[in-house]
Each structure stands twice: as structure tokens, then as C-alpha cells.
Design a protein around this nucleic acid. Sequence first.
DNA 1: TATTGTTATACTCTATAACTATA
DNA 2: TATAGTTATAGAGTATAACAATA
Lengths: 141, 141
Amino acid sequence: MSEQDLAAISQLRSSTMRLSRRLKHQRVEESLSPTEMGVLGTLARCGKATPGELARKEHVQPPSMTRIVAMLEEKGLVRREPHPEDRRQVVVSSTEQAETILAESRRRRNVWLAELAQGLDEEEWAVLREAAPVLYKLAHL
Amino acid sequence: MSEQDLAAISQLRSSTMRLSRRLKHQRVEESLSPTEMGVLGTLARCGKATPGELARKEHVQPPSMTRIVAMLEEKGLVRREPHPEDRRQVVVSSTEQAETILAESRRRRNVWLAELAQGLDEEEWAVLREAAPVLYKLAHL
DNA sequence: TATTGTTATACTCTATAACTATA
DNA sequence: TATAGTTATAGAGTATAACAATA
């Protein structure tokens, strides 16, 4: 890896960390913790999941996920159903209300980021527009 | 703002959030919390700062920063000196040891990110290399 | 009287250990 | 005997309120 590549990597790392910190402050739903929002996001992508799967994906321990799911259910943001085959397991899915919150959260952060991007000139913005799908691929590798 | 621009913004947002979550797991110093690392980073950039300034920059309340600074001082990562003009204030600065930890943290995350980037082809990587300084500018606007 | 920093106390989030039900 | 989920309890990390020292 060349010197230039290393410089680019370092810029990507620090920019990502800094941008994410600033994006996080643009929260819509103050009553939901980052992990709770993460669970809603995962359910929106995967449709449904067991508490154990959610715990692994959000990097928390199972007892913590039990509490989180209970909290979200109480707020009407997720549903809990018995697993059709294995009666030990539970299937968690998100509600319409959760989708609304997620959509609003994404919208708000997009607005903030779009406003920030006003500070770039036309050429810089063209570079970023081309890089966006590549960055997306990188983040999902 | 065009439809394409909005799509790029949305990709930038979600990629940034996801990449940052994964980068955060690549912590070097398990004994330091994210906020404590943030304080060391701020001090490395600004040289020195008062607890009040640090609290504002890290988005925590002053009493929390008192605890954090005390913890860092106990570990030999920061120094506390009386303010030369205002005897109410305290000046906090980081030590050599803190710089070492920060450098190792950056290095480790760079290695992880560089390895991830192996999954991109040459053309995609060229796009990112060009975008890195622009992203850096965006993050610091 | 306002401001900086601190102490005392409480709350939120998460973890570990022990338990229940099912496989 | 192993696994999924839960309950009980403890530990970080942060917040609010009250206080001391200085401006």
C-alpha cells in the first residue's frame, strides 16, 4: 500500500468518525437510545428476528436485549410472537409506528447533511456524488 | 437539490454511520471510554483546555468532565495546572503517554480500514482516494 | 451577583450470574 | 445435556442539584 493510499485511509477514518459523531446529535426521537434505534433499523432491514439474533447484531448481551425489546414493545414499536416451530424462541417484528420514526430520523439527518454539503463547491460535490456508492459498498463489505 | 443528490446524501449518511460503528469496535485501549478517548483527541488537537471547554466540546455536563479528567489524571494521561490569570479555572493538557495511546489507536483503525478496502477493485479505490480529502473537508465544515 | 469547578446523589444502560422452559 | 429467553443484581457512565472559591 502506497504512502498516498495510507493518507487516504487515514482521512477516511477520521472523517467518518467525526461526521458520525455530528450526525448522531441530529436525533429525532430523544426517548430512544442509539441501541434501541439500532434494533428498529435491523428489524426494518431483516423483517423479523429473535432476541438472540438482535443481541448478536447490536453487540449487546441477551439480557440487555430482553430489556430493550420489552421497552420497545411497551412503546408500541415492536411486536413479540411465539416462534412457529421452537417454543423456546420469540419472533420480534417492528410496527408501522417504528417505520415512521425511522423514516423521520433518516430524513432529518439527510437534511442536516445536505445543508452541510452546501459548503462544498460544485466540483467537490461531484467527487462525493461519485464516491457515495463506493463508500456504501465499503461500509457493507 | 436533485434526486441524484438526495440519493448520494442518503448513501453518505448510512455509510458513515455504519462504518463508524464498525471502526469503534477496533478499540485499542479497552480501559478508556469513547468520551475519555475524545478528550485525549481534543487535547492533542488544541494543546490545552479548561474542564468547561472540554465539557462543551465533548457534549457532556461539567460534573461529568470533572470525573473524566480526574480519571485520566490518575492514569497519567493528562496534567492539571492552575490557570495563570483566573484562579477559578484549571488548565488540562495531555501527556506523552496519551499521545502514544492515540497514535496506536489511529494506527489500528487504519489497518482495519485498509484491510476492508482490499475488497474494492482498483477503479473503486481510485474514486475513494480522490474523495477522501473532500470528505475530510465536509466533516470539518 | 455571575462564573468555574467540584461534591453528593440519582438515573440510564449494559453486564454477569442464576433460573425456567423447551429441545 | 444444550439452548433461548428471562429475572435478579451489580457496575459503568452520565445527569441534576447543591456547594465552594473566585471574578
